[in-house]
Design a protein around this nucleic acid. Sequence first.
DNA 1: ATGAAAGCGCTAACAT
DNA 2: ATGTTAGCGCTTTCAT
Lengths: 334, 334
Amino acid sequence: MSDSKNISIKDVAKHANVSTATVSHVINGTRFVSEDTKRKVHQAMNDLNYRINFVARSLRSRKSYVIAFLAPILASETSNYFFMSVAAGIQSVLKQNHYHLVLSDSHEEAEYEADEIRMLGSQMIDGLIMAPASRELDYEHLFGDYPVVYLDRVPNNSNRDCVVVDNKTVSKEAVQMLIGKGHKRIAYLSGPNTLTTTEERVAGYLEALSEAGIEAESDLISIGEVSLDSGYKLTESLMRHEPTAIFVTDNVMAMGVMFYMQEKKISVPEQIAVVAYDEFQWTRITSPPLTVIEQPAFELGVKAAEVMLERIDNAGSPRQEHRLTANLVVRQSS
Amino acid sequence: MSDSKNISIKDVAKHANVSTATVSHVINGTRFVSEDTKRKVHQAMNDLNYRINFVARSLRSRKSYVIAFLAPILASETSNYFFMSVAAGIQSVLKQNHYHLVLSDSHEEAEYEADEIRMLGSQMIDGLIMAPASRELDYEHLFGDYPVVYLDRVPNNSNRDCVVVDNKTVSKEAVQMLIGKGHKRIAYLSGPNTLTTTEERVAGYLEALSEAGIEAESDLISIGEVSLDSGYKLTESLMRHEPTAIFVTDNVMAMGVMFYMQEKKISVPEQIAVVAYDEFQWTRITSPPLTVIEQPAFELGVKAAEVMLERIDNAGSPRQEHRLTANLVVRQSS
DNA sequence: ATGAAAGCGCTAACAT
DNA sequence: ATGTTAGCGCTTTCAT
C-alpha cells in the first residue's frame, strides 16, 4: 500500500539539486536558506511524498520528543478515568511543545511495570512520567538516562520531581464533614496499602477521628483489592460492625459499596452515609448521587508535564515537589 | 542520574574481547555463539549496565515492534472505557508476541487525528490500528508504509482489514425487545452520523420499527454531540414528542438522559423505558440499573491485534473483515 | 565459531 | 548561502 520505497532526505536533495544539509535545514529551520531554494526543496518533498524518518533523526540527535506516561490505565475491570484524565492533561501541554505522548500500562503490577520500563529502553523517550505501582520498589536501576517525574504516588526515598494530590487534607475534611453530621462510627474502605495515596487517605481519616475524640476501631478499617467484587465483600464484613457512614477511597470499590446497599435495600444516606473518591460523572446519577472527592486529575497531568519539560531544559535545577488540592463535592449520599 | 554515558554494543564488545557482531548475535540469538563467549558477553553487559538502543536497532532493521492504536481515548468529559478495554485487548496479544503498544489520541477530531498519524511518521511503528473519527475522510495519503487495521468503524471505500461490532443486529434486538413490551413510541438518541457505528445502530432501530409495522417519526430521532449536556438537552426536546421508551447509543449521552429523568422525577421504567450502550459497570448501580448493550470491547482489541500480526507476517494475504457480536443485557430500566 | 565493515537516514561541525 | 562528510548504535553480509 502507498509508496513501498522509502524516500530519504538524499532522494529529496538529488531531486532538488541541493545538498542533504540544505534539505535538513529547510525541514528544521535551523539555518538560513534562500526562499528560492526553500521552494525547490518543498517542491521535491511534495513530488516524492517524502516523510521524515523520526527514528533516524532521533538516533542522530539523541532526542525523540517522546514522553512516556506509565500508569495503571488499562486494568480491565477497573475503569480508570482518573489516569485517563491525567493523560489528557499531560498531552495538552506536550502537544503545545511539540512533544508526543506515549501511554504505557503498568497493570498496577510490579512485574508488568518493570517490563514496560525496560521496553521504553533508552533513547526511545526523552522522559518518563509515572505513577508507581508500589512505594516499596526500587525503580532507579530500571530507568534509562532520562528524567523521571512521579505522579500521584511516590516511592520511598525518592529524590525525583513529583506532582501529587494532597490526599490527607481532603480526606480529613470529608471525615470531618461526616462527623459534623453526627456520625461516630465511620468505616474506611480502600485499596492496597502499598500506595502512598492510601497511606495519606487513611492518615486524614485517623486524624479527623482523633481530633474529634473518636477512637479508631480496626474493625471499621478495611483494606483490600481494587474491584467491584472486593468492594462488595468488604462492605459486607464492614456492615457487621454497624457503621453509620462509609468512606471509600476508590471509585471501583465504591461501585461495590453501592451495589451492596442497593441489593440489601439499605437506604443512603438515611441508613448509611457514603463518601467516595474520584469518578465525578457517573456518580451524579447513582441513587442517590454520591458525595465524592474530586481530584484535580487533568491539572495533575498538566503540572507533571510542565515539570518534565523544565527538567529536560535544565537537568541541574532543584527538585520540584507539587501538592495539588482536591475538592470535596457534597451531594446527596452523605 | 544513573550512568550519564551511554554504553553501546561497541563498549561491550571491547570489554568482552569480542566483536560487535558477536555481541549482537548473543543479544538476538541469531547465530551460534559458544557458551564461553556468551558468558563473557553477558558478564560485560552486566558490568557496564548495558541497555540496548532500540532506536538504532529499529533504524537498521526497519522494524520497531511497536504498534500504535489511534482512537478517541482521552477526550476529556467523555469517559471512554470502551476504547480503553479495546486497548487492553490489543495489548494482551501484542505483549505475548513481544510487540509494544503505543496509545494515541484522536480527540474524535479530524485535525488532531491527522496530526497524530503524521507524528507516528514512518519507521516508528510497524502497524496502526485505528478507530477513525469520520467515515468521510481520506486517510490513505496520511499513512506511512505500514499496515492499517480499522477497528469499530470503517471509512467509506476502505479496502483495509477491519474488525467491527455487529451494531445493526443488536440494536434491532434491543428495539424489538422494547416493542415486545408494548412500546410504540421509541425515541432514538445518538452521537454524530459521521460514524459507521451510528449508521448501523439507526438502521437496526429503523428495521425493527418497520418490521413491526411502526412508522418511524423524525421527531423521535435525535442525533447530536457526545456529552452529558447534549444528552440532557436532546432528551428534553425528545420528551416533547412523548416517547414511552428511549434508546440511547452512547454511554456519555446516556448519563444526560438519566440525569434528566432524575431531575424531572420521571420514573424509569414506569414512565419511560431506557436502553443504553456500553458502560457495563456503572450502569449497574444507577437508579434503576440500566438495560445496556454490552460490546465485546476486549475481544475487539484481541481480534484486531491478531489480524495486525498476521498482516505483518504476510502482506499479501487476502483482506480480513471481522464482525463481532454484541450482547443485550436486560436490567431494570426497560 | 567469530570478525570486519558497510550502511540504515539523519544532523551538525567544518568547509567554502 | 550552501555543500561535504563523519558518525549516532545497531544488524548483517561477506570473510576467514
